[in-house]
């Protein structure tokens, strides 16, 4: 049975007030369209989890969706600061609870969640203040070697949203380019929404099964949303909109300017199609130049 629904319906059905949510993607394939729909549906008290909150969580924090942030690097990649985040933490805005790790710590938390284990071990955090700031970073003594290893608890979000290049209507999802922690996040989460640049026939998936990172069996909803990762990028589809990331510094620095941006580009549009229709230059500016791979032979 098809799981294909609109973004509106996917968010309405699967993201609830108070949920812990992970919108995946590391620089690549960040689910901006999904984040904007969550803002439009005015979800509240979310625990937002991501290695890099990026602009999408800064927008969601500014819109009042977030109660708590679980993260490892909160900057504007290549450009500067996340100002809504900073205002909250520096006592100049609505408060935001923090649970902070390093990238490896977040990766380890998701690995534990995806493996169905309560925690994960890593050789890390010795000589740092991170376990002081975050008492959930603990340690364990290896029963085989006696080495003391750091531990982090499993992260098991209520909802994971992954943006992918292509998927079938059952949610079998294929990604190429940077992989982030999409697979671990999806397996760690109770519900998974796959958002795809292209919906393809199941035969396309079956012709190249090594490229599938998320199987349909763990997916509740599939959304077709071309350019749904803008201003981040989708390898082979469109480039990162670096100009947007740079310009965001000036938008987000001032609370009122940021609120006006949300009014115009999130609340002021019905959906991603309308967001795109207002920016007719995007395709000419960012569409990827082709660089097809060779293909492999799955014969036997």
């Amino acid at each position: 049975m098809s799981k294909l629904v609109s973004m509106h319906d996917a968010i309405a059905a699967h993201v609830r007030d108070g949920d812990s949510v992970i919108i995946e993607g590391f620089t690549h394939l960040i689910g901006f369209a999904a984040g904007h729909e969550i803002i439009r549906q005015r979800r509240r008290d979310l625990t937002l989890c991501r290695l890099t909150p990026d602009l999408i969580y800064d927008q969601m924090i500014a819109a009042g969706c977030a109660r708590k942030l679980v993260f490892s690097w909160a900057g504007n990649p290549g450009a500067g600061s996340l100002f809504a985040f900073r205002r909250a933490v520096e006592g100049k805005g609505p408060p935001l609870e923090l649970e902070e790790y390093s990238h490896f710590g977040m990766v380890a938390r998701l690995s534990a969640g995806a493996a169905g284990l309560p925690f994960w071990t890593l050789r890390n955090y010795g000589g740092t203040d991170l376990p002081v700031a975050n008492p959930r970073i603990k340690s364990v003594t290896c029963p085989y070697t006696g080495e003391v290893l750091a531990t982090v608890p499993a992260l098991r979000p209520d909802v994971c949203i992954v943006h992918v290049q292509r998927a079938d209507i059952h949610g079998n999802a294929q990604v190429w380019g940077l992989l982030s922690t999409q697979k671990e996040a999806a397996f760690a989460s109770a519900r998974v929404i796959v958002v795809a640049e292209e919906i393809v026939d199941e035969a396309v998936i079956r012709a190249d099964p090594n490229r599938t990172i998320i199987p349909g069996l763990i997916v509740q909803a599939v959304v077709h949303e071309p350019w749904g990762a803008h201003p981040s990028y989708a390898q082979g589809f469109y480039d990162r909109d670096n100009d947007f990331y740079v310009a965001w510094e000036q938008v987000a620095r001032d609370e009122a300017t940021l609120a006006r941006w949300l009014d115009e580009w999130v609340y002021g549009v019905k959906d991603r199609a309308e967001y795109l229709a207002r920016q007719p230059d995007l395709r000419a500016r960012l569409t990827a130049k082709p660089r097809p791979s060779g293909s492999v032979d799955y014969g036997y």
């Binding site: 993260f71 690097w73 909160a74 900057g75 600061s81 902070e100 390093s102 890390n124 740092t128 991170l130």
Partner: peptide
């Protein structure tokens, strides 16, 4: 904090390992 910076990213584990 007076000024909040981005945090570790991968820096802590690079410094360790």
């Amino acid at each position: 904090p007076k000024v909040r910076l981005p945090g570790s990213g991968g820096a802590a584990e690079i410094a360790v390992n």
